[in-house]
């Protein structure tokens, strides 16, 4: 019977995966001079059906359950593994496609093969039926998950909803002064916009703008909120905090003007470029602020195809 794997997906994976991807690297070996009486213990302890025999780093044979049974049946005296092992060992190389291993298992009816490195012919591991099944299942699961993510695009929601105008609103709550978590909202919004199928450049500009605004919020305020309204033509982002407020907005807009404390500057922020950066990334920006009450930054990014610009406005 010609060994042939019928399922096309498995065949494909059999070529994609290499022997090294699924082999067992946990090397259990014996020496040629190991007595046969020890073999049973090694097989049982490791729950394996065969053991590679190694002499001076090289594979010289394999001793398996069948050899052990034959020796026991013969009721012969104790002898070395060398006398009872199979010397013509069928091996595989680590860089061979997995399908070779599957075919060889089928062809010889074995349960395991030693695997060698091609360069030095040293033993690298063993390949077993369980290992192959485990490797294939794992790969199938990963592929399935990736496929699922690819399929999961929410860009159709706008077409699916029946209304004169459809908008989506996303809200993010930001905790001030917590620098380790700063940027989480921008990161989450970025992923969300990508899922909506928004143009990558638009996603990037919106993400940078929100990230800068979120940083300002974290630096100066105790808490705040980011509200993002997405409709088919534009993204409206509102970042509102209950911080100390900006005394002079015009001054705050000047590149390099900053009132950020030193600890923020040490982290690479607060260099007075934040609002400036936001302005370059969005199509429209309004800042309103009341001393002692808080600050509100409102930004608009157009999402229509013709408005996609690769260049960040200005010269940077």
């Amino acid at each position: 019977m010609t060994p042939y794997v019928k399922a096309p997906k498995i065949r494909e994976l059999g070529y994609e995966l290499k022997v090294r991807d699924v082999m067992d690297r946990n090397l259990i070996t014996v020496q040629p001079e190991t007595p046969m009486s020890k073999v049973r213990g090694v097989l049982r302890l490791n729950r394996i059906s065969g053991i590679p025999v190694i002499d001076k780093g090289k594979l010289v044979g394999v001793i398996c359950v069948e050899d052990l049974v034959n020796w026991l049946m013969a009721r012969a005296d104790n002898c070395s593994v060398e006398e009872k092992m199979s010397k013509n060992v069928v091996t595989l190389y680590t860089d061979e496609p997995l399908i070779h291993a599957i075919n060889k298992l089928e062809q010889y009816g074995f349960f395991h093969f030693p695997v060698l490195e091609r360069e030095n012919r040293e033993l690298a591991g063993t390949i077993t039926r369980e290992g192959i099944i485990r490797g294939l299942l794992k790969k199938l699961e990963i592929d399935y998950r990736e496929e699922e993510i690819r399929h999961y695009r929410a860009s159709h929601v706008f077409e699916d909803m029946i209304a004169d105008k459809t908008s989506l609103i996303f809200q993010y709550y930001v905790v001030g002064q917590d620098f380790n978590r700063a940027g989480e909202s921008a990161s989450a919004l970025k992923k969300t916009l990508k899922r909506l199928g928004t143009h990558p450049e638009i996603v990037r500009r919106a993400a940078i703008a929100v990230y800068e605004a979120e940083m300002n919020l974290v630096i100066f305020a105790r808490s705040g909120e980011i509200i993002v309204k997405v409709d088919p033509n534009q993204i409206r982002i509102e970042v509102e905090d209950s911080g100390p407020g900006i005394p002079d907005i015009e001054k705050a807009m000047q590149p390099g003007y900053s009132t950020a404390p030193d600890w923020v500057r040490e982290l690479g922020f607060g260099a007075g470029m934040g609002l400036n950066n936001i302005k370059k990334c969005v199509d429209e920006m309004n800042v309103t602020s009341t001393i002692g009450k808080g600050t509100r930054v409102e930004m608009y990014v157009a999402t229509k195809k013709e408005s996609v610009s690769y260049e960040v406005k200005g010269t940077g």
């Binding site: 800068e212 982290l267 922020f269 260099a271 470029m273 950066n277 940077g316």
Partner: peptide
């Protein structure tokens, strides 16, 4: 400066 990184990278 992280703000500079954000503004210059394409």
């Amino acid at each position: 400066l992280m703000s500079d990184v954000l503004s210059c990278v394409q």
